[in-house]
Design a protein around this nucleic acid. Structure first.
Lengths: 181, 181
DNA sequence: TATTCCTTTCAGGAAGATATGAAAATTGTA
DNA sequence: TACAATTTTCATATCTTCCTGAAAGGAATA
C-alpha cells in the first residue's frame, strides 16, 4: 500500500512536470527550463544536478545551462549543504512571487523596448515632424493607429508598474477585482 | 518634399512590422503571422495576397497559410471588391478588441486544458483518494503546492471570465484600476 | 465546357532552436 | 601545490518549426 502511494506521487509529479512543460510558452521560457523548474517546484526539495538529470532524463550540460538561467530569472536559488560538495537547487515556493517575478522580467525585456520603438514611430509622424503638411487619409490613419496602440500599451504598462511591482500588490488587486460585486 | 514624406511613411511602416514581429511571442503567434497582421493593421487598408507578398518578401504559400490562421483567430477578415476577382484582407482596427480576442483564444486553447490536468493532479492527492493515510512531509508539501497554484490560476481564470469577455469590460476594468487613487 | 485567374495544399528543404558529451575551468581538500 | 569532485562551456548533432514553389483545386467568365 505504501508502495502504491509512492508510485502515485511519482505519477503526479510526472504529470505536473509535463504540464509545466506545456505552460512554457505562456511564461515565455523554454520547455526544458520550465520542466526543470516544474520539478523543483513540485518536489519542494533542494535537488542536485544529478537528481534532475536522472528524473528528467536530460544531459548534464543542458541541466547546467537551464539552471543558471533559472537562477538568473530568480525563480530558483542555489543551496549548499555542509559536508557536501555538490550544489543543490531549490525553487521559490510562493506562486504569486513567481508570477510577479516573471511578469516584471518580461515587461523589462520585451515590453519596454517595444514601447520605445513605438514612441519613436509616433514621433516620426507627428504633425511637426512632417512639417505641418496636412496628412492625407492613409497617413492620417497610420498615425491614428499607432497612437491607439500606444495608448493601450501605456495603460497596461502603468498597471504593471503599480500591481506587478510586488506580489502583495498583485494579490490585493486581484482580490479587489474578484470580490467586489 | 512629398517624396520624402512617402519614404518616411514607408520606413515607419517597416519599423512597425518589425516591432509586431518581435511581439509575436508575447501574443503567442508565429512571427510571420504577426508581421502580416502588423502590416494590415498599420496600413489600415485592405491588401491582396500579392501586396503582402511583395511588401514582406514572403512566398505565396506562406502568406496564404498565415492569412487563414489570422482569419481563424478573427483578427483579419476577407474583403471582396466588386469587379475584382482577387480577395483582399483587412485587420480589425480596435486594439482593445484585438487584445480580448487573442486573450480569450489563448485562454481557451492553453489555460483551460492546464486547469483541467491540474485539477486531476490535485484529486489524485486528495486525502480520500489516498485512503486517509496521513500524508508524510514531502507528499503533504506537494499537495500544498498544487493547491496553491490551482488557487491562483482559478482566480485569474475568474478574472478573465469577467473582464476579457468583451473589450468593453476590459476597458472599464483597466480604467477603474488606473483612475482610482 | 473550356479557359483564365486566383487560392490552397503539401512534400521537401532551409533556418532556427535545443540538446549532447567531452574537454576545460573551477572549487574544494589534503 | 597536487588531486579529486563538480560545474561550465561549446562545437557538433539533433530536433522542430517554418518557408518555398510547384501542382492541384476552385471559382468566375466566355
Amino acid at each position: 500500500m505504501k508502495v502504491a502511494l509512492a508510485e502515485r506521487l511519482d505519477q503526479v509529479e510526472e504529470q505536473f512536470v509535463e504540464l509545466w512543460n506545456n505552460m512554457a510558452s505562456l511564461w515565455g521560457i523554454s520547455p526544458t527550463m520550465a520542466r526543470i523548474h516544474g520539478l523543483l517546484y513540485i518536489s519542494g526539495a533542494a535537488l542536485s544536478m544529478d537528481d534532475i538529470m536522472e528524473r528528467l532524463g536530460i544531459s548534464r550540460g543542458n541541466v547546467s545551462m537551464n539552471l543558471s538561467k533559472l537562477v538568473e530569472w530568480g525563480l530558483v536559488r542555489r543551496v549548499h549543504k555542509r559536508g557536501d560538495r555538490k550544489e543543490y537547487f531549490e525553487s521559490l515556493s510562493d506562486v504569486w512571487e513567481m508570477f510577479t517575478l516573471v511578469a516584471n522580467q518580461r515587461k523589462r525585456r520585451e515590453i519596454d523596448p517595444i514601447l520605445t520603438t513605438l514612441r519613436r514611430c509616433r514621433d516620426e509622424l507627428t504633425p511637426e515632424a512632417i512639417g505641418g503638411q496636412a496628412l492625407k487619409e492613409p497617413a492620417q490613419k497610420r498615425f491614428q493607429r499607432i497612437n491607439d496602440l500606444l495608448k493601450l500599451l501605456t495603460l497596461f504598462d502603468g498597471l504593471a508598474q503599480r500591481f506587478f511591482e510586488s506580489h502583495k500588490g498583485l494579490r490585493e488587486a486581484v482580490e479587489m477585482l474578484t470580490s467586489e460585486e
